[in-house]
Design a protein around this nucleic acid. Structure first.
Length: 458
RNA sequence: GUGGUUGUAGCUCAGCUGGUUAGAGCGCUUGAUUGUGGUUCAAGAGGUCGCCGGUUCGAAACCGGUCUUCCACCCCA
């Protein structure tokens, strides 16, 4: 027992069924990305620490996995620094690389580094694992996959519209009906903060507002108050708590509320553009909902903010998110490069599809036929047939050992291989095969041509 | 990082307020059935009770630590 090996907290092994199902999701997303004109790139699993550190806030820095330097890394730490026992100061001395925390910042780094080779607007997608030194929880892992698509180099709001359509297309294809694509705009949030005179508290304000679903109206107000937002300012927010009309109605109320904020009105206008065009284009199974409390996510969003909520019957955090960031590459020295992107949370989508039993039954690929092994001469006879079948693209295999027949048959049974093929002395003499349907138990003798025909058809 | 929770056979789990040889179902192996799996029947293998330490005449059970699981908070996909 104690010798049993294990894997680190928050990581998982994937068996054949899980891999098949994950690939099914990956492929669906990839096809959609490609269909909308995105091309794949990949970046290293680890980056230089200074590329990542400071990009996700203080909390983010804590959650980044740092990679210890090679060699005698402690030699660079002088005695006084060591004596101070300040972990963050020492970290920068003993670790210069870190595992990537998301795909957006490495992408920004990529764009800046390759700006002269890239044709803008640049549309890329990227499906790779990311790592967070978080404490695991439902749908939260320390290693998980993100599937991102981003466009840089265009300010057009049509990109936002494209992304809403991609979300709809992917979840429709996955048969996951009833997802809600929530959309908000950072300019609206800033506008509200401006209107109530709490501009300097924008982050605290948005973080608290984002919790409305969870802690309710009073909870949000209390949290804002405890963060130093005045009671008077909180009173002005009252209209926000009764936003349950249609998108158009909500936009109207926002317009009134933000009448004195230029940037707030700009945000309303942007949202209205997106909502109106989506309404005219139509969505298949998803719905678009304006949600002014949507604020979560990274601080670099400057325009649209997206978040996708799973169908209400499953309890799961967001299964996708994204937004526009006018100055993402600015942190790496490339100005005026607007970007907008979305992300699919593969691992969570998996959990949701599993819970709702939405995976197709045929996702797992297995052999069509198992040839029973009766000994060296018979195995060669079988292998010749298998070789021909494989040339036709028919998946077939032979049991590798000349084991007892019962064992070979039960192997076929357990692996859900639908047909068994038996060829011993008698069949070899007659140039035939005994072909058995594992489900019905029927069996009969056939020649190779017929064998191939049946297997090809089924 | 904070609070709670979980760990017993390959898997899912029983195991009383501390008491002698730790159980069940499923799975596995073998046989009934030397060219036939799924059903049935019979027999069998498999556990230093997560790990380390402590209390006790005696610990799977109680205490401490540690790792792990799951959940909530912070934060996030």
């Amino acid at each position: 027992m104690s010798k049993k090996p294990s894997i680190p907290k928050g990581t998982r092994d994937f068996g054949p069924t899980e891999v098949a199902r994950r690939n099914y999701i990956f492929n669906t997303i990839k096809e959609a990305f490609a269909l909308y004109g995105f091309q794949p790139i990949e970046t290293p699993s680890f980056e230089n620490s200074d590329t990542l550190m400071g990009k996700y806030g203080e909390e983010g820095d804590r959650l980044i996995f740092k990679i210890l330097n090679s060699g005698d890394y402690l030699s660079k730490v002088n005695d006084s620094l060591y004596a101070e026992k300040d972990s963050s100061k020492i970290t920068s001395k003993i670790s210069e690389k870190a595992l990537r925390y998301d795909l957006t910042v490495p992408f920004a780094r990529y764009v800046v580094q390759h700006q002269n080779e890239i044709t803008f607007p640049f549309k890329r997608y990227q499906i790779q694992p990311v790592w967070r030194a978080d404490r695991p929880q439902k749908g939260r892992f320390r290693e998980f996959f993100q599937c991102d698509a981003d466009v840089v180099g265009s300010k057009s709001l049509w990109q936002e519209i494209e992304f809403v359509q991609i979300y709809d297309a992917v979840f429709t294809k996955l048969k996951l009906d009833g997802v809600t694509i929530k959309v908000n705009n950072r300019k609206i949030l800033s506008g509200i903060a401006e209107t109530i005179g709490a501009e300097d508290k924008l982050i605290d304000f948005t973080v608290a507002l984002d919790k409305l679903d969870k802690i309710g109206e009073d909870g949000v107000k209390n949290e804002m108050f405890s963060k130093g937002i005045s009671e008077e300012a909180i009173l002005k927010l009252q209209p926000l708590f009764s936003f349950n009309g249609s998108n158009a109605e909500n936009l109207d109320s926002l317009k009134n509320m933000l009448a004195n904020s230029e940037q707030g009105l700009k945000g309303v206008e942007e949202l209205a553009f997106i909502a109106e065009k989506i309404e005219k284009l139509g969505l298949s199974t998803a719905s678009l909902k304006i949600d002014v409390t949507l604020a979560r996510g990274l601080n670099y969003y400057t325009g649209a903010i997206f978040e996708v909520a799973a169908p209400p019957q499953v309890k799961m955090g967001s299964i996708g998110g994204g937004g526009r960031y006018d100055d993402l590459t600015g942190i790496f020295g490339l100005k005026n490069m607007s970007g907008v992107g979305i992300s699919f949370g593969l691992d969570r989508i998996y959990l949701v599809l599993e819970e709702l039993d939405k995976f197709p039954k045929t996702v797992l690929n297995h052999s069509k036929a198992l040839f029973i092994n009766f000994g060296e001469a018979e195995a060669l006879y079988a292998m010749q047939a298998i070789k021909s079948l494989r040339k036709k693209g028919i998946k077939a295999e032979m049991y590798p050992d000349s084991a007892k027949m019962g064992k070979q048959m039960s192997y076929a049974d357990k692996r859900n291989i639908p047909f068994a093929v038996l060829a011993g002395e008698k069949e070899m003499e007659a140039k035939q095969f005994t072909f058995k349907n594992m489900k019905s138990g029927e069996q009969r003798q056939v020649g190779y041509t017929e064998l191939e025909a049946i297997l090809f058809k089924d």
